[in-house]
Design a binder for these strands. Structure first.
Lengths: 125, 125
DNA sequence: CCGCATCCCTCTAGATACTG
DNA sequence: CAGTATCTAGAGGGATGCGG
């Protein structure tokens, strides 16, 4: 990650794009939301999959893996047969949910405006 | 946009992903930030390009086009030779900058934590 | 039950070039 | 100077299958 294409080093003091590279993925924001709403409980893999409609087995595992690797989620393995694995947000992950919640709120409030504007082809009222 | 891959319709009541599909693009957030910081002035195409290091001519035009089509930015053509085109945020675009600013702030404050965690391989202190 | 590897397809975005 | 079209490489993400 953070490839530094060719000789072109972008400003290393711009963490926003790096954050969006992670959070802008197709499923990250939704999984963080679901985990945040489950607080203070943790969620099993299967339960998570049920609460994120449309996600594939692979993408859920992959996204959870990256969240765990980034310290945004904790992973707890229950040593049973079959083993069950549970996830919850870390403090860091919980703090990330705050700006994400602001974004969700904006989206719910204003996406209809964008849709209307786009549908009318940008004509003034 | 909002392709609805194959037969798989996701929940239409989830505008957050649709917003992230737009804002999560590589340049959108940065351009909105630059336009917001220039307020109340508008910025010419060339000036914008100077303020967004690393962006290509094509991607700047393309991103500005989508912002304009979504009603997030206004486009003003100065009928001179050569023609100059100026951009500024609309009220809607300006309101979007608020949650984006929250995200930027989080990124600046917490990306180092993520980096440290990843660098230590997720080891507890 | 959950994780990981493989294959494949689509979509993004960079390079380049032509028009107004 | 600004906008658009074409081509191409690479990443993201879906389906499937084996391993633990």
């Amino acid at each position: 990650m953070v490839p530094a294409r060719r000789g072109d080093l972008f400003d290393p003091a711009c963490p926003t794009r790096r954050l969006l590279d992670r959070v802008g993925g197709k499923w990250v924001a939704m999984i963080v939301k679901v985990l945040a709403e489950a607080e203070p409980d943790e969620l099993g893999f299967a339960e998570l999959r049920r609460r994120v409609p449309g996600i594939s087995h692979k993408m859920l595992a992959q996204t959870l893996r990256s969240l765990t690797a980034d310290g945004l989620a904790d992973r707890r393995v229950e040593p049973s047969t079959p083993p069950r694995v549970h996830y919850r947000l870390t403090d860091l992950g919980r703090s990330l949910d705050e700006p994400l919640a602001a974004l969700r709120e904006w989206a719910e409030r204003h996406m209809p405006d964008i849709d209307d504007f786009a549908r009318r082809g940008g004509t003034s009222p």
